[in-house]
Simulated scan of single mutants.
Amino acid sequence: MSGKFIVIEGLEGAGKSSAIAVVKAAIEQAGHTLVCTREPGGTPMAEAIRECVKHDWQEQVTVEAELLLMYAARVQLLANVIKPALEQGQWVLGDRHDLSSQAYQGGGRQIPETMLESLRAISLKGFKPDLTLYLDVEPSAGLARARGRGALDRIELSGLDFFTRTRDRYLQLAAQDPSIKVIDAMQDMPAVHAQIRKELQGFLA
């Protein structure tokens, strides 16, 4: 595959939308054709799964059901958008990917790593991003920012302890993988964007 796959990760309120705009501009300025997508979502079926995941159902949504829905959407996106674009030499910029499941469902929901490993093996077959930018924010600050945007969805209402566990797992995974770069999202926005551009400079070079 001649294209590159870059992913933006982070808790709610970390500033992913503005970070995506910065990365998009840098990649296009470097002369690469870019496809932008998000998870869960990015195809008609995956977008329907996204609505299913976020909906506040009048029943218990089991952690296993949530996890399987995430991977179902991810498989559809990989097969129909990400891999075809990369094979054509296009770059792909993703709003979340598998690291989200490892952090949210593995850390936040405390699903055993053995279960996650099995799903990754079946679904991804070793596929991973070339670069991940993880926007690190204190959970309480991130949730306050998210509330300022409007009503929270089912996952955003999971509570501070859930997001603390999720953040801890993000940081643990980032420490183990040199392709994951941690961006301090508690800085003001210009400083955050400057750090993102600095990380991209070396990658694009």
Rank of each mutant, 00 (worst) to 15 (best):
V22H: 00
E156F: 09
T37N: 04
S179I: 01
V192C: 07
I49L: 12
Q29V: 02
A103Q: 11
L157E: 10
G126P: 14
A85T: 01
V35F: 08
G31Q: 05
D136H: 02
F162H: 10
I183F: 09
R149A: 00
G89I: 07
T62I: 01
F203R: 11
E199D: 08
S123T: 15
A65P: 00
Q76S: 04
G41T: 00
C52Y: 07
A19S: 15
R197V: 12
E47I: 01
L78D: 08
I8W: 00
L135V: 09
L11S: 12
A141W: 01
K54D: 06
A72P: 06
S179C: 04
G159E: 01
R120F: 08
G108C: 05
C52I: 04
D95W: 05
A194W: 08
P129I: 03
M189K: 15
A48I: 01
S2H: 13
D177V: 06
E117M: 01
V23M: 03
E87I: 04
Q195C: 03
I183W: 08
L78Q: 15
P84S: 00
L11V: 02
R167E: 08
E59Y: 05
S158M: 04
S123Y: 10
G89S: 06
I183M: 13
I6H: 10
A26Y: 12
V75Y: 14
G159D: 04
A174Y: 11
A65T: 13
T164V: 10
L116Q: 09
L157P: 01
V192W: 06
V182K: 12
S18R: 07
V22A: 09
R197M: 11
K128H: 15
T114G: 03
H193N: 11
G42K: 10
Q110V: 06
R147D: 03
L173E: 13
S123F: 13
D188K: 14
N80C: 03
V192P: 07
L86M: 11
Q60C: 02
D161Q: 07
F203D: 10
D168Y: 02
G94K: 14
I111A: 00
R197P: 04
